[in-house]
Each structure stands twice: as structure tokens, then as C-alpha cells.
Design a binder for these strands. Structure first.
Lengths: 218, 218
DNA sequence: TAGATTGTTAATCGATTAACAATC
DNA sequence: TAGATTGTTAATCGATTAACAATC
């Protein structure tokens, strides 16, 4: 997929992903008080060649000073403004098992600009046993709560067999972005709804394969 | 990165990732008792065009019957044999906060062929408070335990600032594959050690950007 | 048989890399 | 100034797509 920024060519999705990672780095740099950085140093830190860093940034805007690197704050501002990386978006967790429960308390989400404003689970028993400051609701209230609270994003941590109908319910409720944490792949869902799959077992399997190939396949 | 399988051209990493996802699908199909499947149906289920599915498989071997689709068991066997997707690999969790604790109990890991055989944390207090059947150890014993137990893979869920030294300790201990669950990017680490980054905040930020671009950027 | 579907070759498309003029 | 470093254009490289002969 490619989406265009005004006056610039469309941004390849691979570039968008690298820029998002770079944005995370810039946030760290600001906390640590670093004011300037070169494309070479950004590249070293996120594992990308310097010329790719410059190329990726150039899809968005001119953000550096020829011959003198980038101002961390300026670059961050430019990426935020054009790509929305700094925008705060209200987020919910669906499925409150061990993993979902851990996500409710995951500080990085708040720090990263994604406040968790609701949790959902099909089991009302479970809702009562969880200790958290996040408001919890039974699954059947999803659509109502999403609309009332203006929730834009959802992290889905339900059992694999419940993913399809959970995603459908989220979309019906007006959610526009979903991170699917289960091992069932959810294919693209419709105009204006974006989905990203995080599959831990799949990542381990890819590692396993890389080891097999590296050590000389059978 | 590309790695070659005997008698075939090197496999693009993107193809390897899609095939890993397809392998996961094949496992589901076997559980549900499906014997045959076409490239079109595989593609529909994992969100990839049919011709890409065929192309990806062809990097590995001839695994179908011209005109008659794939036998699920045969295809799974071929992918396992050439790419090691079905290999069981002993795995550990490093960092036993809420997230690491949830991972210790994550059934999908066992089911997926990645038995969790050890957990590590720098805090000995924490080790005492966790209820699990998985043997837990203080972080300083990592290298010893990894060697003794023949552990090949690690999932790192420590605080972001501890990632670098954790990864170094793991590699020193002989770990060959790492999934980094923290938001700090870990760049490629050395010959024969593979790393994959899973960054939830980054995924949400990418979604946020897609929404911004889709709705007409500022 | 006719319809379906694979495996592969060739064509297209797009992303990455290289190189360098501009300039701090 | 001289060295460093950006932004962009052009060249390369590689992946994806299209198309079709083979054949179940």
C-alpha cells in the first residue's frame, strides 16, 4: 500500500515502517538530551543504511541542513506533522487473559501516545477479578463504548478461534486500526480499517528456519 | 538476507516470512481435518495473491500436483524438511515482569513447537513470587543454563534500557535466535545469531500514520 | 472430456543503492 | 577553508505479477 503526502510522491510502506522506528529513536534522543544527529548515526541505531534513511526522510520533506545533519526536534516535528507519528490515539484491549491483562498495565503504551481507555472480555467473571484502573466492559458493549469514548485503535488478544468475530465487532463499532496479537492471520478488512498482525510463534518459526538454513538445510 | 536451499535459488526473506505464515495455516487445517488446498485458498486465508503463494513454494520444491492443488500434509512436510518450520527448539524468557510472566504461561508457544524451559530475571525477589512450572533462574546464571539445557531461542521482555546488555549476555551464552519484545531496536548482532524485533508501540504508530495519511494528512 | 490448477518463464514494477552537486 | 553531510537523480537490483504450457 502507498499513501501520498501532499506535494510528494507516495511513501512506500517499507519506508513508512523504517521512519516509524526512527521516530521512536528520536523520542529516546530527546529524553537523553541529544540535539543533533546525522543520517549515518540514525542508520546505525536502527539497522538501516544512511542513504536509505535520507531517502526515506526525503519522501516526506526536506528536514535537515545540507552538510550539517538533522536537528532532532525539527526532524521529529516534521515526521509528526506529515505522518501523524506523534498523534495521541485512544486505544482499547480486547481479550483479558494473561496477555491482555499484561497489556492493560503496559506502561510503554501510555508513554508512546496510546492511552488504554477500555478493556473488554466476553467473560464477566473475568472482568471482576482483574485489578486495574482501566475501565472494563463485557464484550457485547464494545460498539457502544468505542463510540462513546472515541476509541480509534484496538489490540486484540483473544483466543485464536475468536479473532474473526472480534475483528468484525470492532469494525462494526467504528474502530479504524487493529493490532492482532493472536496467531490467526486477519486479512485486510475494508476501506479505512488497517490491521497489523503480531505473531510471536511465527517470529520464532522464522528464526528457527533461519537457523536451519544457516546451518545447512537437510 | 537470503539463504539457499540445496539445488534451488536463494529464498527472499519476504517469501520465507509468507511461507512461515502459510505453515501456521497448514497446521490449523490439519487440526480441522482438511486434506487438500489450492494456492488460491491459501492466498485468501493469509492475504497474499495465489501466484505469490505458488512462486514462494517453488523456491523450496515442487510440492503440489499440477491441476489438482496441494496435499496439506505433503506441503507441510516439504516446508518442514527444507525450511525447518516444524523443528522443536528449546526456548527461554528473559525478563519476568507482567509481560514476561504472561509469556511463561503462553500456551501457543508450546503448541507451536517452542517449549519454554527456563525463565530469567535480574531480581531474585521476583523469581520467588512467580507461580509457574517453568524453572526460573537469576540473570547471572544465563550462560550456564543456556548451555546446560541446550536452549536455542530467547524471548527478551526486559526494560528497554537493559536490552543491549541482555542480548550480549544471551549471545555470550550461545543463543542463536532472539525475539526482542522491547521498544529498543536491536541491530544485527553477529554471524549466526538472528534477531527479530516485535514492537507493539511501533505497530500502533504505523497504524496511526496510516490513518493520518488515509484521512488526508495535514 | 472439460475445467481447474500447478510450476515456471518472461515482463513489469518498485525499492534500494550509488554517486555527487550543493552547502553548512 | 576543508571536511562533513544532505537531498536528489540515475543506475541497479530484486521482487512481484502476468501468462501459459503441462497435466490432473
Amino acid at each position: 500500500m502507498k499513501l501520498s503526502s501532499p506535494n510528494r510522491a507516495a511513501i512506500p510502506e517499507a519506508a513508512l515502517q523504517r521512519l516509524s522506528t526512527a521516530f521512536g529513536l528520536l523520542q529516546e534522543l530527546r529524553i537523553s538530551g541529544t540535539d543533533e544527529i546525522s543520517s549515518a548515526e540514525i542508520g546505525r541505531r536502527i539497522g538501516v543504511p544512511a542513504h536509505s534513511v535520507r531517502k526515506d526522510i526525503s519522501y516526506v520533506a526536506e528536514a535537515g541542513r545540507t552538510g550539517a545533519g538533522y536537528d532532532v526536534e525539527v526532524l521529529q516535528g516534521v515526521l509528526d506533522q506529515h505522518l501523524g507519528f506523534g498523534r495521541k490515539r485512544r486505544t482499547c484491549i480486547v481479550g483479558l487473559g494473561r496477555m491482555g491483562g499484561a497489556l492493560l498495565a503496559f506502561q510503554e503504551l501510555w508513554a508512546g501516545g496510546f492511552p488504554i481507555v477500555a478493556g473488554f472480555d466476553a467473560s464477566t467473571n473475568k472482568l471482576e477479578t482483574i485489578r486495574t484502573n482501566v475501565p472494563l466492559f463485557p464484550a457485547y458493549q464494545m460498539a457502544d463504548v468505542i463510540k462513546r469514548e472515541g476509541i480509534e485503535l484496538a489490540i486484540v488478544a483473544v483466543p485464536a478461534e475468536a479473532v474473526q468475530r472480534t475483528v468484525q465487532a470492532l469494525i462494526a463499532g467504528g474502530i479504524t486500526g487493529i493490532v492482532n496479537f493472536t496467531s490467526a492471520v486477519v486479512a485486510p478488512a475494508g476501506e479505512g480499517v488497517f490491521i497489523r498482525n503480531i505473531d510471536l510463534v511465527n517470529e520464532l518459526r522464522i528464526l528457527s528456519s533461519l537457523l536451519t538454513l544457516h546451518n545447512g538445510a537437510a
